[in-house]
């Protein structure tokens, strides 16, 4: 199970089956450079693996005006 928080929104979303950052992006309909994907204070490229128990933060990069 992977826990994903998008722009601080609560509650976080959980994904039982996602294995890579790319799968997560696809699931959220995001392109590679639409958001920062952060785990343990580290930025992840799309090819990185995600593991059960991971807490991932998605930070959208588009400014909101």
């Amino acid at each position: 199970m992977i826990t994903v928080t998008i722009d601080g929104k609560k509650p976080p979303i959980t994904y039982p089956k996602i294995k890579t950052v790319l799968q997560l992006l696809n699931n959220l309909h995001l392109r590679v450079n639409d958001a920062l994907i952060i785990r343990d204070g580290e930025l992840l490229t799309p090819d990185r693996h995600l593991w059960p128990g991971d807490q991932v933060t998605v930070r959208m990069v588009v400014s909101r005006g």
Binding site: N33, T45, P46, D47
Partner: peptide
Amino acid sequence: MKCKRCGELAAVKLPS
């Protein structure tokens, strides 16, 4: 993915 400059683990992918 590896860093284009130094070969370490990449943190940022820039397709452009």
